[in-house]
Amino acid sequence: MENSRRRFLEMLGIAAVAAGTQPVWNAFAAEHGSATPEPSVKKGPNELKAKQWAMVIDTRKIEKASDLEPIIEACHKLHNVPHFENKHHEIKWIWEEEYIHAFPTDPNRFLDERIHHIPFLVLCNHCENPPCVRACPTKATFKRESDGIVMMDFHRCIGCRFCMAACPYGARSFNFRDPRPFIKETNKEFPTRMKGVVEKCQFCTERLAVGLQPACVEASNGILTFGDLYDEESDVRKLLKENFSIRRKQSLGTEPSVYYIV
């Protein structure tokens, strides 16, 4: 509590430089006298915490595209992801790819029938060493210190698309036009985006904040497991301990946080 208040006030200092908000609190203090308790911010009581959130995708449980449909649907519906007929303007947070596209640098010949035929689920890897964050000129995309999620600040993005060039996983989409007319059913509790900004999966930060698992995990019927990569007791670590897993383009050193059991 004390800590968060301090941080809130620090933030005020930063914001004052950035947006000239100092008069706010001066005016406020003048009105109420210095004895009045200052307002503060804090985290919600039910928030799920982790050092680095990670996901394990158990591809052994995937048989056909219809197994993944509810997962993709749950995410895209919840987050007002538009659907464009024009492939050029496509926006997707989580989608399916064949093995050779999900793992294009490991194009094994004579793949076994199952891997060859099943769809692979791909999304932002929330890399531990994210090249997109390195590239962004405004810190509009940043790695959140508290839990390792690679976030997007849609308010700050200038739409230069450097992050899209930097991402080796094609995880990022750009709003080439106003997305609103292309959202079938709008979830009114979640914002849409505006034209000219980049977007992607954020590991459902809004759900983690209130103690819920990401929407895709909840809809996955056990295909997806979510947890703290640095907690040995977490579900993801248990799965990783017991099974052979791979990650996309590991040789690039980005350290993806999405693991695939094959």
Partner: peptide
């Protein structure tokens, strides 16, 4: 106030505001 709210929610993962 809204500007501070959005900053704290998006960048600091702090979503609860406690008023005076």
């Amino acid at each position: 106030l809204l500007d501070l709210w959005r900053h704290n929610v998006v960048r600091n993962a702090e979503r609860v505001f406690v008023n005076t």
